[in-house]
Structure formats: structure tokens, C-alpha cells
């Protein structure tokens, strides 16, 4: 067992200002220069990869059948990444979350043309959304949230949390402390039968104080990653708290 008292890995350390000034979403929006095109495309891909599920959830909540939603979402992202949608829809370019939903609504509203693309999307099997897993998740979602937009935001919140947790786990594992992460994870999320600190301490042979400190570090780092992840979908850093509040409301 790694020493749980050693500092949580990866306080972000001396990060360069630019790291934060150039969020993924602001990179996407800095359109134009040919030179930046690759970086822009990569940033957009990365964002889409992280947030395709909310779109799928939205489509399903709207009443699309499973296959239809799957194909439609694939066609939508294909078109989004081709760049046409990005050029056309500047309705709300403030946040990636709002933008994605607006785009998807346009996409759905564009009637017959969309229908064609929708059908064609059926052939695009190489889209890397994991449809079977998506459906598995969909069925597992609670059914009380009937509003598609609310469903979208809720799924978005989950995607943010998942992303931050995955990064956190990877960091701990890279630092040889995967076991610390696994032991402390229950303290983060109100898991059932989450063991108390004392019990945890006994189990891993450390003092209770040491476990508390390690848990605090885990939490702090998680918070940093969470904020950073949300910030990646924004352009204006002052919107961060507001965006977090929106996610809170959707999740609680």
C-alpha cells in the first residue's frame, strides 16, 4: 500500500497562463487561420468525444427510437466535425454546452435534408460512439426527468464528473498510487456503506489523521480537475461558477 500521507498527486503545479487561456472551446472558436486548423479540429474532436452522450440522451428523451437516435447522433457529429455546422450556427457561441444543444436542435429542425443525412448516418459504423453502452446507460437512467433539455444537462453533468474522475484515477495510477485512489474513492461520492475514516485507516494500516489528509488531497485535486474540465467548455472564465451552478441544479 502506498503511503496515504504523501501529498495527493498532481497539484497542478506551475502551470503556464496560456494553458488556461486557451481552453479547448476557445481554441475551436479561434477560427480562420489555416495554420490553426489542425489544433482547432483536434480540440473540437476532443470535446465531442467527451460530450456525445448528452446529445444521445437528448435525442432519446425527445422520443427517438434507439436506432434512429444512434444514427442521427452519428450523422450530427459527422456534420459538426466537417465544419459546416460550426460556420452556420453562431446562435449561442458562449458555452460549448449551449452551442452543442443549439446545433443539434437546428440539425433536427432542418427537416428533410436532415432526414437524408440521418439515413446516411446509418452507414457510418466507424463512428466511435459506443452505441451499445450508450443504450445500456440510457435504460439505466431514471425516468422521472421528462424534459429533454434537463436530461441533456444531467447527462452533461455526468460526463464532466466521469471525465474528471478518470483523469484523477489516471494521475494516481501514474504516481503508483492506484490503491490509494481506490481506497479513498468512496469518501468522494456518498457511496453506500462508505467506510469511515477510522475503518479505512485500520484496513490500510495508516493513522486516521493520515487518511483524512489523503482524502482531503484527493478531494482538492478532484475539484481542480473538475473546474478545469468545465473551463475547457467555456471561453469566458468568469462563467465558470455559473456553469457549475447549472450542473448542480441539474444533478440534484
Amino acid at each position: 500500500m502506498a503511503d496515504p500521507t504523501s501529498k495527493g498527486p498532481a497539484s497542478a503545479g506551475p502551470q503556464l497562463a496560456r494553458d488556461f487561456a486557451t481552453t479547448r472551446w476557445s481554441l475551436v472558436q479561434r477560427a480562420g487561420q489555416e495554420d490553426d486548423d489542425d489544433a482547432r479540429q483536434a480540440a473540437l474532436s476532443e470535446l465531442c468525444q467527451a460530450y456525445w452522450y448528452p446529445v444521445y440522451a437528448f435525442a432519446r428523451r425527445q422520443g427517438s427510437a434507439r436506432v434512429e437516435a444512434e444514427d442521427g447522433v452519428q450523422a450530427f457529429f459527422a456534420e459538426l466535425l466537417e465544419g459546416d455546422l460550426l460556420a452556420r450556427a453562431d446562435a449561442d457561441r458562449g458555452r460549448f454546452r449551449a452551442y452543442l444543444l443549439t446545433c443539434f436542435r437546428h440539425f433536427l429542425a432542418n427537416g428533410r435534408a436532415r432526414e437524408e443525412a440521418w439515413k446516411r448516418g446509418g452507414g457510418r459504423r466507424h463512428v466511435s460512439i459506443d452505441a451499445a453502452r450508450a443504450e445500456g446507460r440510457w435504460v439505466a437512467e431514471p425516468v422521472d426527468a421528462t424534459d429533454p433539455e434537463r436530461e441533456f444537462t444531467r447527462a452533461w453533468g455526468h460526463a464532466v464528473l466521469e471525465g474528471a474522475l478518470e483523469t484523477l484515477r489516471a494521475e494516481y495510477e501514474a504516481g503508483g498510487k492506484g490503491d490509494v485512489f481506490a481506497a479513498l474513492l468512496p469518501t468522494l461520492g456518498g457511496q453506500q456503506e462508505s467506510p469511515g475514516y477510522r475503518e479505512l485507516a485500520e484496513r490500510i494500516g495508516a493513522t486516521e489523521g493520515a487518511v483524512k489528509v489523503a482524502a482531503l488531497r484527493l478531494r482538492r485535486r478532484f475539484g481542480e480537475l473538475l473546474r478545469r474540465r468545465v473551463a475547457q467548455t467555456l471561453v469566458d472564465p468568469s462563467e465558470l461558477e455559473d456553469e457549475l451552478r447549472g450542473l448542480f441544479e441539474a444533478l440534484s
Binding site: 466521469e162 453506500q192 478531494r219
Partner: peptide
């Protein structure tokens, strides 16, 4: 409700967010 499936499995998303960024 606790989340099911994936890395969030068995965790409470609302509590996670609260833990991460403070009490809303």
C-alpha cells in the same frame, strides 16, 4: 439516485460535484 455503470458506478453525482467544488 446513485449513478450506475462506468466510473461513476455506485457514486452519487450530486455529492461528487459538491465535494469537488464546494457546497452550492
Amino acid at each position: 439516485p446513485l449513478a450506475e455503470g462506468g466510473v461513476l458506478s455506485g457514486l452519487c453525482p450530486a455529492c461528487l460535484l459538491r465535494q469537488g467544488v464546494g457546497d452550492p
